[in-house]
Design a protein around this nucleic acid. Structure first.
Lengths: 406, 406
DNA sequence: CGGCTTATTTCAGGGCTTGATTTAAGCGCT
DNA sequence: AGCGCTTAAATCAAGCCCTGAAATAAGCCG
């Protein structure tokens, strides 16, 4: 109810649903979504699932089959009647490419429509050097590599999705602000456009990862969810009404810079008391050191793992730090539950998974203590289910989404 | 993009847009919304505003005029062409009733479609006695009072909206949980149904107030907004994609129970460190007393006003409390800005307005210090514009919304 | 008063979904 | 093997809807 736009700009006119032809496109799209996420089903099942008449389903399906998008696959016997013919989206109708632009590497993956990986390419990046040119070159090289490796013709690529570690503005032009890369208003789409004609979609990496979990991971079917990502810093993808809420200028989700101790520890963002000043991997290790601990040599990942190991022994500094961490994180989770009343919270990111392995139950309990009974009891807190490729997978869902929408 | 429901239950089938007739209903509704919020406009303007062809606009408008919903009102001359005929929604086509169930009184108001108040009735409630029966009786009495006072026939009432101070569950049956009233799973709709046949819509009072501000107050036109309500406690209505985000079980918006000092002051919800443990009127007065202040006699409103007056003098206890209050509230606002990236934050509630009068600028500054540059710079923080009738007004928009949707 | 400009309405054309009606495809029992 | 029964899918005529083009309405201007 009431999702119709009021006169808030041009949104009303942009809506593309006035003619009977749009109706057809919509129905076609509804059927495709239903088929894609519902798996192989008969026309009849589609009819009851979507509320469309059997006649229309038949009609649209013939079209989709003629286009090669949908294929009949076997049939299911019924006792005493004509067997139902099962339909499914043809995974080879087209392919999508997902790109994960990370701090240390650009990862490019090619999937068929069933989201089976068909090819993959990794290009290391110099961690001290994140020229837009270098990244663009890596992405373009990755695209042509996966194309040749998979033997897929570029004509059957439905699109390329790119997940980047920064705020992505879509209007008036796609531009990326990424502090860690020193990017400010980098017109990534325009730069890529010079090297490829494929349809492009660019979004924040945390959002693409969230979308991956939402579609294929722990978030399947959720209408209201929060996917929290804890790595060196802390971010989140917020799902409301079944789709990502990016806020008014696409920078929503900065969970890490939400207060937990007003006037507390200084955060790398310059403010004080942020969650990220306590809970990100970087902050955890700093706090460990401040408390007299000696972080293990190596990268953050190794150091954090070592600290977690130490934390298993009572009385250690590691344990103290981790107990506090669980308290802060759990309290913040409780706050999110109260504020947004999600049906599911999903914790991920490399540090989040490390932490979750050992402390998930403690986090649940802390969140319970810091939230109201009712909203807590209708929420579940879980870990991400997808591996390190989730960002690329989620990025690939961007063109997939466009395809399913027609 | 991508607001289509995935296979998350029965939502797909519930969508009522498959047939060419639904298309008509939708277009009719789009035109009505545009006319309602865009004011008097010609058919041609409607055509460009909605993207529908002039022919269709004419067509639908004739229908609406025949139904008495829309009326032609004057025309504007143009130099050298046929003058445009202005259309508007006929404010007398129907009426809506809004009910505000507060702690001390039930307020019932009757509006025409232009949201001009036509009648109003107040029924005091015994603050120690919030029997569902008493409240239901007051609401029903209020409805018949405003009907007779306004002379409006009940047949032209489009519906009644009720705002209650508690969590409202819509499924499987409308039921209300209101801690302050001692209500648990009160089937308010069923109880009211026994006394009236009018269409009913029940929602949380903070949400209805938020909707009022969104439609007619400081929030006009916003797609992403937060309406914060500070009274005795602290709540919020969260608007995303242009409509209220109630979360998965309709209890979203408990901003007051979001952490600001983990491990801090005990809140009346039983947890510690909640925003409401510092910023609600009740908490502010408690903190004042704990710090050695002597609250003025009388109700909370008088006492808070007195403290605010004292706070104007440097060195007083009142000033100390208020400085802290601004710090906590501002930090929490900063967190909301980072997390949700709203285009507007609107502060209301009786205590919020009292506070905002004097400290709005300080709050803005504190929020700025506690948020990231980009999202802060695209947000404005303002005060509610509507008076104490906002809850009833917002409640009345519930049936109005249904009417506009057809 | 006639030409000109702009706003609405009218109308034929093309599309869409649907309920009803057929046709297709097996099952089970005789 | 044959026949009736059951269920799934396809076909078809009917009823709506939106749109572009053409026609009509309504003033202004010289």
């Amino acid at each position: 109810m009431g999702t119709k736009n009021r006169e808030g700009g041009t949104t009303l006119a942009e809506r593309k649903r006035g003619t009977v032809r749009d109706l057809r496109r919509d129905n076609r799209s509804v059927l495709l979504w239903s088929l894609y996420f519902g798996g192989a089903r008969s026309r009849q099942e589609l009819s009851t699932a979507t509320g469309l008449s059997p006649a229309s389903v038949s009609n649209v399906m013939r079209e989709l089959i003629d286009d090669g998008i949908v294929a009949e696959v076997g049939s299911v016997d019924s006792d005493g009647g004509r067997p139902r013919v099962l339909l499914r989206v043809n995974p080879e109708y087209g392919y999508v490419i997902g790109v994960d632009v990370g701090e240390t590497r650009v990862q490019v993956e090619l999937f068929d429509l069933g989201m089976t990986e068909r090819a993959k390419a990794d290009f290391p990046l110099d961690p001290r050097q994140h020229d837009a040119e270098a990244v663009v070159a890596a992405i373009l090289a990755g695209i042509s590599t996966v194309l040749t490796d998979s033997g897929v013709h570029s004509g059957s690529i439905l699109g390329v999705g790119v997940g980047v570690p920064g705020v992505v503005q879509q209007h008036p032009e796609v531009s990326v602000d990424a502090q860690t890369f020193g990017w400010r208003d980098v017109p990534l789409e325009r730069l890529l456009r010079a090297g490829t004609d494929l349809p492009l979609r660019i979004d924040n990496g945390a959002n693409t990862m969230g979308q991956a979990e939402l579609w294929f991971g722990s978030g399947r079917g959720a209408q209201n969810a929060i996917i929290g990502l804890i790595g060196s810093g802390v971010g989140a993808a917020i799902i409301s009404h079944g789709s990502a809420d990016r806020g008014s200028t696409a920078s929503a989700g900065e969970w890490g810079h939400t207060p937990v101790i007003v006037g507390g520890r200084t955060c790398r963002c310059g403010n004080v008391g942020c969650l990220e000043a306590y809970v990100g991997a970087e902050a955890m290790l700093e706090r460990y050191e401040e408390a007299g601990g000696v972080p293990a040599q190596g990268d953050q990942e190794t150091a954090l793992a070592a600290m977690l190991l130490e934390a298993g022994t009572p009385g250690t500094i590691g344990q103290k730090i981790m107990d506090e961490t669980v308290l802060y994180l759990g309290a913040s989770l409780g706050g999110l539950i109260n504020l947004l009343n999600p049906e599911r919270i999903i914790l991920g990111g490399w540090a989040g998974l490390l932490l979750g392995e050992r402390y998930l139950e403690a986090l649940r309990e802390t969140a319970r203590r810091h939230s109201l009974t009712h909203p807590f009891s209708t929420t579940s807190i879980e870990l991400c289910r997808l591996g390190p490729d989730a960002v690329a997978l989620g990025a690939a869902t961007l063109p997939l989404e466009r395809f399913l929408n027609g």
